[in-house]
Amino acid sequence: MSETFTGKVWTLGDDIDTDIIIPTEYLALKTVQDMAPYAFSPLRPELAAQIQPGDVIVAGKNFGCGSSREQAPEIIKALGVRCVIARSFARIFFRNAINNGLLLIENSDLRDAVTEGDTIEVCVGEKIVHKDREFPIASLPQNLMDILNAGGLVKAMRRLNGLEG
């Protein structure tokens, strides 16, 4: 997957937890679309309405720490976020994002270099380009790429059950 795209950057700090991404009180709403307007509301209530499809979130370390709620990556995807770039990701959030086809990229240096509103270019599995500076990024292990390439774990299982080619 040597895909390249550009996106406008929204910046967040360290330890953005799942209660910030979506507070528990909204988890019993019926769909992730119903929940999406409340994304990041404890920290930045206006943010969910400002994010446009194709935008990119750039955060600090331990993004997605906290609960196992899978709505967290689903909502970020529902807002149209193209990918999340962070210094590091919490374990469960990382698995949930891959299983839902949300691209995550680990990079230590980009967060300090970008300002909110900047535009970056992402060459998946290769590099990020920001104002003529290049930030190399690693590619994911093959078993995770297989899930991402299948379009998420649901589609991978449908294939297993002979429902998709």
């Binding site: 609960s67 196992s68 709620r69 899978e70 469960i92 949930n96 299983n99 839902n100 774990l153 299982m157």
Partner: peptide
């Protein structure tokens, strides 16, 4: 360990 609902379904 904790997992999400999609992995649980699988």
């Amino acid at each position: 360990s904790g997992i999400g609902y999609t992995e649980m379904a699988s």
